[in-house]
Design a protein around this nucleic acid. Structure first.
Lengths: 108, 108
DNA sequence: GAAGAAAGGTTTGCGGTACAAACCGGAGGT
DNA sequence: ACCTCCGGTTTGTACCGCAAACCTTTCTTC
């Protein structure tokens, strides 16, 4: 690991994207949530939420399971790896902010 | 303002982009920095740093001033508005993380 | 039991963006 | 005078997010 500033280059853009950061952060504190609930708290349209979830699923961050029988119902949860990834992401961001707080330009 | 989750929709993507978040956060704690210094701490290529700075300048976040006479030298600093924008950005991010920490899914 | 409305998602089209790599202009060395 | 290298800018391409159109399966109502 380099400085927090350099580290931003390695940031996971899959998670960093604002809507997905909201989704994954919401999922951090619960086992799972259903589609409509996520839609409500993020304010995203069905279409965009769906496409964000597909990307997160493809990236191994979340699992998306659809109920069979009755009205369709989709439940979303973080994978163990996803949980790690999101946690690490927040760590990096926090380190960056803290570094910015403490730091003054060298050579000045 | 809505919930921290909804708020992510309003996040300023100009500042949120990882490289630019590194740049602007670095600038938060100093009056100004020169091009090469920013390049060094962020690890960006000249080309990309330059293009990020142009976007930040166009968005009114930073000022970019070039020295005349002698070797070219470019100095970058946050505008007052830029300083506000970046600070607000961090506030939003912090609120999101804190919300994710405290929150458990309602109705479950 | 058939038609229509509607919930629950998916796909598509397009405008915008980041990054790598080519390019450029002028100062210093020789 | 030439060459080279520092300090940036421009360009070209591949990807990405968003809105809006589209699909599919379930309820409702007669």
């Amino acid at each position: 690991m380099g400085t927090p500033f350099e580290d931003m280059a390695e940031i996971d853009r899959l998670v960093h994207e604002p809507s997905r950061l909201a989704i994954t952060s919401a999922l951090l504190s619960c086992e799972s949530a259903d589609f409509l609930f996520l839609q409500r708290i993020t304010g995203l349209s069905k279409g965009n939420l769906s496409s964000h979830l597909s990307k997160l699923e493809k990236g191994g961050i979340v699992t998306v399971t659809k109920s069979t029988g009755g009205r369709p119902r989709t439940t979303i949860g973080l994978t163990p790896m996803g949980r790690d990834t999101v946690a690490q992401h927040w760590e990096r961001l926090t380190r960056l902010r803290d570094a910015a707080r403490e730091w003054t330009a060298p050579g000045e």
